[in-house]
């Protein structure tokens, strides 16, 4: 294992200190327990957005704290949900009296720990709602599993719900919008190589030199099938097929197309993927009116990418376009 780290036990703490040093204009960082809040929080009268989960997916979530997006991010250990304590602390730190929305990726650990935290915060008279993100169509038969996973679509929920909160929508509206984004978003990913969790020191799974994993999760959880390496266009078709069928997306739809890098993929490849995805959508009469390309929801150094499609309407488009000022997503100010 080769990593630019010191002690594996200090990875999350030291990265938080780096975030504080680099983005002290945007965020305040608390330690013991670790959480990151928007500079100047709480914003009185604004619904506060709190998200979190295991580390190793950076810039998710800490990179999305700031104006127009999250009020707080709670990073757990690498690939491990945070415990309720820091979630409660973050929730209290950002509550501006208008309630708090927890944005939770659908993993057993995240769901249980956020659930407990919400109970504890409610006991302290903070109104907490939760939206569970489950955009990953790779998980089939979700009745017989822990359900679909929350993956790259999380960024879109955080941005759009964040814009809703920023214009002082009430908790019910912000929750509705977050839920709507989740409901209209579908994602699927591919891994070319595994990732190495620092404390494990070994790859999360093994792939032969000519194998790829279709439907990979963002913690290196296996996906739908392991196949031989194919040209990028064929891989894109494999990812996009289940996405488009699932909602389903239809001719005439306007969408946001998001190609996300898993952390170790050269950006030039993400554009090759974007090109093919846009081409296929065009053939199907689906119009790409907004786009996002880059490493936003990563799995450490994993090579691979995911494709996310969000069906837009005027409400969502307006909120997507609204100003945002975070370390990893910024426009309009």
């Amino acid at each position: 294992m080769k990593k630019l780290i010191n002690d594996p036990k200090n990875v999350v703490d030291e990265a938080a200190r780096g975030i504080e040093a680099a983005h002290g204009d945007l965020v305040d960082v608390f330690y013991d327990p670790i959480y990151i809040v928007r500079k100047g929080a709480p914003v009185q009268g604004k619904v506060a957005l709190v998200s979190g989960g295991g580390s190793g997916h950076e810039p998710l979530h800490g990179g999305f704290v700031g104006f127009g997006m999250l009020d707080a991010a709670v990073p757990g250990p690498v690939f491990t949900s945070p415990t309720p304590d820091p979630i409660v602390a973050a929730t209290k730190a950002v509550d501006g009296g208008a309630g708090v929305l927890h944005i939770v990726k659908n993993y057993t650990g995240d769901v249980l720990n956020f659930e407990t935290a919400a109970d504890l915060a409610s006991a302290d008279d903070i109104e907490v709602r939760s939206v569970i993100i489950n955009d990953d169509v790779a998980v089939k038969d979700s009745l017989y599993t822990a359900g679909r996973r929350g993956v790259a679509g999380t960024v879109l929920v955080e941005k759009i719900a964040g814009a809703s909160a920023e214009r002082l929508d009430d908790l019910e509206t912000v929750t509705r919008i977050a839920q709507k984004v989740n409901d209209q978003t579908r994602s699927m990913g591919v891994a070319l190589t595994p990732c190495v969790v620092p404390h494990a020191g070994e790859p999360s799974f093994t792939l032969a030199d000519d194998e790829i994993e279709i439907g990979i999760g963002i913690h290196g959880e296996p996906g739908r099938e392991r196949i031989k390496l194919e040209p990028a266009d064929a891989i894109v078709d494999r990812l996009l097929g289940p996405i488009l069928e699932d909602l389903p997306f239809a001719s005439g739809d306007k969408v946001l197309l998001f190609v996300n890098g898993m952390g170790g993929t050269p950006q030039i490849e993400l554009y090759i993927v974007f090109r093919r995805a846009a081409e296929v959508l065009k053939e199907k009469g689906v119009e790409v009116t907004r786009s996002l390309v880059g490493n936003f929801v990563t799995s450490l150094e994993m090579q691979g990418a995911s494709i996310t499609v969000l069906k837009l309407d005027d409400e969502l488009t307006e909120l997507w376009d609204a100003p945002v000022q975070t370390a990893a997503l910024r426009w309009g100010r």
Binding site: G76, T83, P84, N113
Partner: peptide, 12 residues
């Protein structure tokens, strides 16, 4: 355990 383990196993 609840406040240090995290993940699925912590709450369980």
């Amino acid at each position: 355990l609840i406040s240090t383990v995290g993940g699925a196993s912590g709450p369980l």
